[in-house]
Design a protein around this nucleic acid. Sequence first.
DNA 1: ATTGGCACTCAATAAAGGTGAGTGCCAATT
DNA 2: AATTGGCACTCACCTTTATTGAGTGCCAAT
Lengths: 351, 351
Amino acid sequence: MNSGARDLNDRSLQLLKTLVERYISDGQPVGSRVLSKDSDIKLSPATIRNVMADLEDLGLIHSPHTSAGRIPTVSGYRLFVDSLLTVKPLDSKELACLHQGLSDKDDNGKMIGTASRLLAELTHMAGVVTLPRRELVSLRHIEFLPLSHKRVLVIFVTNEQEVHNKIIHTDKVFTPSELQQAGAYLNSIYCGHSLISVRAAVLKELQDAQERMNQGMLDAIKMAQLTFDSGDQKDDYVLTGETNLMGFLELSGRDHLKKLFDAFSQKQDVIHLLDQSMKADGVQIFIGEESGYQAFDQCSLVTSSYSVNDEVVGVLGVIGPTRMAYEKIIPFVDVTAKLLGAALNPKTTTP
Amino acid sequence: MNSGARDLNDRSLQLLKTLVERYISDGQPVGSRVLSKDSDIKLSPATIRNVMADLEDLGLIHSPHTSAGRIPTVSGYRLFVDSLLTVKPLDSKELACLHQGLSDKDDNGKMIGTASRLLAELTHMAGVVTLPRRELVSLRHIEFLPLSHKRVLVIFVTNEQEVHNKIIHTDKVFTPSELQQAGAYLNSIYCGHSLISVRAAVLKELQDAQERMNQGMLDAIKMAQLTFDSGDQKDDYVLTGETNLMGFLELSGRDHLKKLFDAFSQKQDVIHLLDQSMKADGVQIFIGEESGYQAFDQCSLVTSSYSVNDEVVGVLGVIGPTRMAYEKIIPFVDVTAKLLGAALNPKTTTP
DNA sequence: ATTGGCACTCAATAAAGGTGAGTGCCAATT
DNA sequence: AATTGGCACTCACCTTTATTGAGTGCCAAT
C-alpha cells in the first residue's frame, strides 16, 4: 500500500494521470479501452489492464465492482495533485472578474463576502472565506455607550473600517461623560496597536500598576479588559454557493448532503479545518476523508491563506466534489487569495 | 370548484378533517378503509367513498392515482386550517424553552438569531425571523470617523443596542474634530427620534432652512442625509435549520430542494413573502402554491408579525412541508412572536 | 341513506432474461 | 521479457413480465 511515486515507472504514472483526468472530466469509472484510445497512450487494453492491476495493488485506484472501470482512491488523487498535475493558467475572463470584484474600492467591509461569492460563482462550487483574524488587526477607535443595568455597549473599529460591538457588564453604573472620558483615554494610548497587544498591555496594567492610576483610568482599563476578553474572538467565515453542491453530489445520497450542510451550519468543523490551512503557506488541499471529518467524505477542499502586510490573517477556499478540476481550481484559489490580501491591504490614511 | 364550507354538511367536514389529520401524521394517501376504522367515524368504507367523491368534486382532495387513497389539495388544507383545525395548547416544555431563550437577558443583539434557532429546533423545520424594520426604530447615537479619500465611516446605534455602520462619500475632507462636532450636533437634536422621522427632518432642513445654519451644521445634516439615504435599508432575515427540510422533503426531488435553497440565498422572494405577512396582524399561513413562488410549491409558511410598543416591526415564522402539524405550529409561532416582541421591548433606560 | 359485493385499476415489488462494458488470465507474438 | 490477442467470466443496468394488494366506482340489496 505504499503509494510513493518512486515505486512506479513513468508509464504507470502517465497512465494514472490520464485516468484521473478522465475520471474528473467524465465522472464515470474509466476502463482499459478508453485509456488505450487516449491520444497519448499507445498501448493495448491488455497491457493497460496489467498496469492498472499494479496501480490497484498500490492502493491508487480501485473498481467499484468487477465489471466496471477504475476510479482513483484518495491516495490516487493525492499522488495526482502532488506530482502529476499540470496546472492550467487562469482563464482571462475569470481573472478579469476577480480583479473587478476585488478592486479595493470603497466597500471594503463587504470584501470578504464578495470574495466568497466570486469563488462560488466562478467555480460553480461552494466558496468559503474566513474573516480576518482579530489579533492581527489594529485598533482604530473605541467607544462606550451606557445601557441599562450596569451594562455598557462597546463599539470598536479595527483595520480602517470594520466595526465590532459587544455588551459588557460593569461593576458600577457609569455616567455618559465618564464613559466618554474612558473611551478618549483608551483611544489616546492604544489607538493603532494590534488587538492582541492591547489585550496584553491591559492585563499588565491591571496587575502591576494600579497605584499610579486614578479611578477613571482604572475603570477604563477594566472595561477594555472586558472588551478584549478572549472569549469573544470566535472565528467565523462566510460561505457561499452551498446550493451549487447539491447539483454536484446528486450521486452520493441525501443523508450525506445533509451531514455536509449540517457541518456548514455548525461551523465548528469547518473552522478547525480551515485553521489547519492557516499555518501552512500557499495552496493546501484536503481530499475526501483526509480532512478527518466524516461530513467531507466525498468532498475536496482547496484552500489558501491570505495575508495583509505579509502577515497571514485568514484563509479562503473552495469546497467541491473530490473529482473537481484541480488543475484549474488550484491556481484560481491561489490568485484569489493574493488579490484579496492586496485588496485588504490598509491604504495609507490621508484624511 | 367552490370550496366554501357552506356547501358541505358537518359529516363531510368531519371526514375531511380526519383525512387531513391522518395524512399529516402518516404522510400516506388515506383511503376509505382507514377512515372507516377511525374511532370517530361510524360509517362503512363505501359511504366514505361517496363522501370523498363529493370532496374531490369540490377540489378539496384528490388521488395521486386510481388505486391510491386521497390527499388534501391546497384548498383542502386551506379549509382545514381556516375552519376545522383544533389548535393544541403549547407543550409546556417547549414553552419553557421559549421563555428561557427569549428572556430579555443581556444579549439583546442576538435575540433575532436566538428566536430563529428556537423556531427551527423546536419544530424540526426551518425558522425565519426578519430583522426589525429600521424606520420604526429610534436613533440612539451617531458618530463619524474619518477614512481616507473623502470617505467617512458612520456608526449609529439604534434601539438600545443595535449597531449599524456605513461608509459615505463626502464632498470635502473633514478633520476628526469636525466630524466629532457634527456627531455631537446630530445627537443633540435627533437622538431618540425614529430613523424615518430623522430622515424626513434632515431632508426638510436641507431644503428650506439653509440660511440660518452655519457651515458645520450644514455639513452634519448633509452627512446625516447620506447616512439615512433610503438605498441602504435592505431588509434582511435570519434563517435557521434549512437542513431540517432536507429530511422532510426527501419525497419531492432534488431539484425542487435546490430551487428552495436557491430562493433562500437569493432572499428576495422570501422577503416579499414575509413582507405580505407584515401587513396583517396575527398568524398567517401560506400553503403550497398559495405563496405564488414556485420554489415554495410543496412548502407551507406559518408566520406572525411581532411588535414592539404596539408597532409591527418584523415577521417571524416557520417553513416546512405542507403536511406539517398546523395545530401545533400555529400556536407555537404565535407565542414566539409575542415573546420576541416582549423581549425586544426597550427597557426604560436607567443608567 | 347506507351498505356489502364485485369487477377493475394501477403503483409497487419481485423475478427473469438480455446486454454490454470490463476484467483476469493465458498462450502466442515481438 | 514485455506486449498483445483471445476467451471465458462477472456483474451492474435495463427491459419485460408476473404477482400482489390497496383502493376505487358502481350497483343492487338492505
